[in-house]
Amino acid sequence: MMSSIIPKSKAKGTDICAFNNYYYIIRSDLGRYMQTSDLNKGSDISIFSLHPACQNGDHYIGGDSYFHIIKGDSCRRVTNLSTDKDAIDFSLHHKCRGGDHYFASVGYFYIIFQEKGTYIKTTSMYENSDPREHSLDPDFKNGLYYWGPPHCKQTSDCFNFLKPDISVSENAEFCTGPDLSKNKHTAVDSVHPNVFNFLIGGLSVNKGPGTGMWEKIKRCFLCHYCITNKELLQN
């Protein structure tokens, strides 16, 4: 059987988002998250503990000032995922509930409804102020993860998504584009293996079929992000 990455829809508490100058990969099942300044180069990788109150979210959204963690119809806003600092909880506006993917970019929140092929663009998820609904380009409909690039300077949409159908025969890739409604001026980059391995299923894609087990260690001798993995091959 060919290995593949586990989509966010089947991996609760897992997500990709961006905050200030960094990208973040959230792994609630490990109680950890990865920080990197470049998904393609795997630069400046660090691993941090994920505060219990910040674990098991349905969606994680970054931005310039806050992380937003959606659980059901509620959202928790924090400034630090390790300490749960400055935590505030609020209810989502009814039009902002039930999305398949959430991300923030250029002062807006984006909520993607994959089956409907639409997305909502709003400046507030609890007031649903200035809501705008748009059609989602069919080529962007089936992303495994969506997130807004850090410090995007576009005046319109600016987004990333992890391409679907990743297998051992392909390189893991993510797309960057200026408009979710049109497949126009879209760039494609590969994901660095050290970053991709941190996603659920990433080890199996890069190392071959098997069960990946992450083990925390106090000192790191084999890798530069303070954890190592062991492949337990299935008999």
Score class of each variant (00 low, 15 high):
residue 57 G to H: 04
residue 49 S to F: 09
residue 27 R to G: 03
residue 22 Y to S: 14
residue 61 I to E: 09
residue 61 I to W: 10
residue 29 D to E: 15
residue 25 I to T: 11
residue 21 N to M: 10
residue 41 K to F: 01
residue 22 Y to F: 14
residue 39 L to I: 13
residue 55 Q to C: 13
residue 37 S to H: 04
residue 58 D to C: 08
residue 50 L to S: 06
residue 40 N to Q: 15
residue 54 C to G: 03
residue 28 S to P: 07
residue 61 I to V: 15
residue 38 D to M: 03
residue 53 A to Y: 06
residue 62 G to Q: 10
residue 22 Y to C: 11
residue 42 G to L: 06
residue 27 R to D: 01
residue 51 H to Q: 07
residue 32 R to A: 06
residue 54 C to T: 03
residue 21 N to Y: 12
residue 49 S to E: 13
residue 40 N to G: 07
residue 55 Q to F: 00
residue 33 Y to W: 04
residue 25 I to V: 14
residue 44 D to K: 15
residue 49 S to G: 09
residue 32 R to S: 03
residue 30 L to P: 09
residue 34 M to H: 01
residue 21 N to V: 09
residue 57 G to F: 02
residue 29 D to P: 04
residue 55 Q to S: 12
residue 58 D to H: 12
residue 48 F to C: 08
residue 59 H to M: 06
residue 43 S to D: 15
residue 41 K to E: 10
residue 46 S to N: 05
residue 60 Y to N: 10
residue 53 A to Q: 13
residue 50 L to V: 04
residue 23 Y to T: 01
residue 40 N to S: 15
residue 49 S to I: 08
residue 24 Y to F: 14
residue 37 S to M: 10
residue 38 D to P: 02
residue 25 I to F: 03
residue 36 T to V: 02
residue 30 L to F: 14
residue 56 N to Q: 11
residue 36 T to S: 07
residue 33 Y to N: 05
residue 26 I to T: 10
residue 27 R to C: 02
residue 56 N to P: 00
residue 37 S to Q: 12
residue 40 N to C: 14
residue 39 L to C: 13
residue 24 Y to P: 02
residue 29 D to F: 11
residue 37 S to Y: 08
residue 32 R to W: 08
residue 55 Q to A: 14
residue 63 G to M: 11
residue 35 Q to W: 01
residue 29 D to L: 05
residue 32 R to L: 15
residue 31 G to C: 12
residue 46 S to M: 04
residue 56 N to H: 11
residue 33 Y to V: 01
residue 59 H to Q: 12
residue 46 S to T: 13
residue 48 F to H: 13
residue 56 N to T: 00
residue 32 R to M: 10
residue 62 G to Y: 08
residue 61 I to H: 09
residue 26 I to M: 09
residue 61 I to P: 07
residue 52 P to F: 05
residue 25 I to S: 06
residue 38 D to T: 01
residue 26 I to P: 09
residue 50 L to F: 03
residue 59 H to F: 14
residue 26 I to D: 09
residue 29 D to T: 13
residue 41 K to M: 07
residue 56 N to R: 07
residue 62 G to F: 09
residue 53 A to K: 12
residue 30 L to A: 11
residue 27 R to P: 05
residue 25 I to H: 07
residue 48 F to R: 10
residue 51 H to K: 08
residue 21 N to P: 00
residue 41 K to V: 01
residue 44 D to A: 12
residue 60 Y to H: 08
residue 49 S to W: 07
residue 24 Y to N: 01
residue 34 M to D: 00
residue 23 Y to H: 15
residue 29 D to V: 11
residue 22 Y to K: 13
residue 57 G to S: 05
residue 31 G to Q: 09
residue 21 N to S: 15
residue 34 M to F: 00
residue 21 N to I: 10
residue 33 Y to M: 02
residue 29 D to M: 05
residue 37 S to A: 13
residue 33 Y to F: 15
residue 41 K to D: 03
residue 40 N to W: 03
residue 52 P to G: 08
residue 38 D to Q: 11
residue 23 Y to I: 06
residue 46 S to Q: 09
residue 55 Q to T: 11
